[in-house]
């Protein structure tokens, strides 16, 4: 029994230590941004990497999510003659929940993994130490631009995903389920409030920060060679995905109550 409790305690302490290290890493990177030099070109490069190059995968996922949502809602709502609610369900689900979560998960897989691999490779080939010897703070140069870009870019990406997802629902509803286009669009707008979209964008900003933070943190702390980099890439994607779902619940509880 004591052995079991000791094991649980050790796991809990290890969790607290890991959380502390992550928090300190983020705090040091953010504090580095309070004083010059700043690297706006690197932020722009990361915005293009995260935003522009993720558009196809996020757009395609959002399109099919909106289409499936319309189909599923129809099969459920038609049982009690509530088909007219489909447009509202699609738009609210996309803006408040599915847009941010799906975009966050897709970006975690595409961008978080790439960040961890790039920074991890730099770590194991001494490039991060080289930055320090060249009077350049690695946190300020490598991590902060990615955190800022993640924070700013995912909301824009989610806005596009929202529109595409709603369009997917519109396509299925009008061409397959026989809805009147004007009526569908009217219902889409009728119950949508500005705060539904804004709260979704707040979620997206948090998710973007999480993806960039986990990619940078695991890459920065890579050890060993190729195996270590591969491992940190896996950790970056898995931890970002889990944190996105955890924070999705916490933010939903905080924003939509």
């Amino acid at each position: 029994m004591i052995t079991f409790l000791a094991s649980v305690g050790a796991i809990f302490l290890a969790f607290l230590a890991a959380t502390g290290r992550l928090f300190l890493f983020a705090a040091r990177a953010i504090l580095a941004g309070l004083t010059p030099p700043y690297y706006p070109r690197l932020v722009l490069r990361e915005i293009v990497n995260i935003g522009y190059f993720s558009l196809p995968v996020v757009g395609l996922t959002a399109l099919f999510t909106g289409m499936v949502l319309a189909l599923q809602s129809y099969s459920g709502f038609s049982r009690f003659n509530a088909e007219s609610a489909i447009a509202t369900v699609v738009v609210l689900s996309m803006t408040r929940e599915l847009g941010p979560v799906i975009a966050g998960l897709m970006v975690a897989g595409r961008v978080g993994a790439a960040m961890a691999a790039e920074i991890g490779t730099m770590r194991v080939t001494d490039q991060i130490d080289a930055l320090a010897t060249l009077s350049t703070d690695p946190l300020r140069y490598l991590v902060l631009p990615r955190l800022v870009a993640g924070l700013l870019t995912l909301p824009a990406l989610v806005l596009v995903a929202d529109v595409i997802g709603v369009f997917g629902g519109y396509l299925v509803s009008t061409y397959k389920l026989g809805f009147e286009p004007v009526a569908y669009l009217t219902h889409t707008r009728q119950f949508l409030e500005t705060m539904d979209v804004v709260d979704g964008l707040i979620k997206a900003a948090v998710f973007g920060f999480i993806v960039a933070l986990m990619g940078c943190y695991h890459g920065y702390n890579s050890r060993g060679g190729a195996e270590g980099v591969g491992q940190s890439t896996t950790y970056a994607v898995v931890s970002a995905s889990i944190l996105i779902l955890v924070f999705d619940y916490l933010l939903t509880a905080a924003l939509f109550d």
Partner: peptide, 30 residues
């Protein structure tokens, strides 16, 4: 750190930059 220069075992050149940018890195960024 301004007093130091370092040649790493594997070179530790920045892959994403051209050779002259690598050499000039400490001058520009540092």
């Amino acid at each position: 750190m301004h007093k130091f220069g370092m040649l790493f075992q594997g070179g530790a050149l920045f892959d994403s930059l051209r050779v002259w940018e690598n050499v000039a890195f400490g001058l520009i960024q540092g």
